[in-house]
Simulated scan of single mutants.
Amino acid sequence: MQSDELPSLYDRLGGVYNIAAVVDDFINRIMTDDRLNKNPAVDQAHHRVSPPGFKYLVTEMVCSASGGPQQYSGRSLGDSHRHLNITDDEWAAFLDDLHKSLAKFEVSSAEEKDLVAIVESTKDAIVVAPLQSRQPPL
């Protein structure tokens, strides 16, 4: 008798090695994205954080959130992002970079949709500032 249960998103994405490849490309994109680095706090964080360590933690997080055996060992998203004053526009740029990385690796639309839903569920912990809060008064 066959199970009607779908494989986990982790399995559908191909496991840790495939996830790590996409995360590697994605982190390279966001670390150098001018749309994100125009925020001085984000730019400073991108120069302070070790890219390999950052990639490791994001890979761990995606694997865990998608049903893999890994356990995320980093700080909470709120604790690690709140001080960056990330805006909705920066969130949109972040998602654009994610979609570009997923397209590069030809992640199917079903898996992309499921992964983006997981990422979208983190928005409230990451986006904390409207754009106008960083603009000087007129």
Results as ranks from 00 to 15, higher is better:
105 F>C: 01
40 P>L: 06
41 A>R: 15
60 E>D: 10
52 P>L: 01
93 A>D: 06
69 P>R: 09
75 R>E: 12
58 V>L: 15
59 T>F: 02
101 S>E: 00
57 L>K: 14
100 K>A: 14
107 V>K: 05
41 A>Y: 13
47 H>K: 15
100 K>P: 00
45 A>E: 12
83 H>N: 11
68 G>S: 07
48 R>G: 08
88 D>Y: 01
46 H>D: 05
98 L>V: 10
99 H>A: 11
87 T>Q: 03
109 S>Y: 14
96 D>N: 12
92 A>F: 03
38 K>N: 14
98 L>A: 11
109 S>G: 09
103 A>T: 12
66 S>F: 06
40 P>A: 05
67 G>L: 09
51 P>R: 04
54 F>S: 03
53 G>H: 09
47 H>Y: 06
64 S>Y: 09
39 N>K: 07
61 M>V: 01
83 H>C: 02
107 V>R: 07
84 L>T: 04
55 K>N: 02
52 P>I: 02
61 M>S: 10
86 I>S: 01
84 L>H: 01
57 L>R: 13
78 G>Y: 15
45 A>Y: 10
99 H>Q: 12
49 V>M: 13
66 S>L: 03
42 V>G: 04
97 D>E: 06
100 K>E: 13
87 T>L: 01
95 L>Q: 07
75 R>K: 12
54 F>Y: 13
40 P>K: 08
68 G>T: 02
106 E>W: 07
108 S>V: 09
108 S>I: 10
87 T>H: 04
51 P>L: 03
64 S>T: 10
73 S>D: 09
43 D>E: 15
38 K>A: 12
51 P>H: 06
45 A>H: 12
70 Q>Y: 08
98 L>Q: 01
81 H>N: 06
72 Y>L: 01
88 D>P: 00
93 A>R: 00
54 F>V: 00
94 F>T: 03
56 Y>N: 08
101 S>Q: 04
110 A>M: 09
70 Q>W: 07
46 H>I: 04
50 S>G: 05
92 A>H: 05
110 A>S: 14
56 Y>T: 06
66 S>A: 13
77 L>M: 15
95 L>K: 07
54 F>C: 04
39 N>P: 06
79 D>E: 14
77 L>C: 02
69 P>K: 10
94 F>K: 01
83 H>T: 10
92 A>N: 10
88 D>S: 09
51 P>C: 03
39 N>T: 05
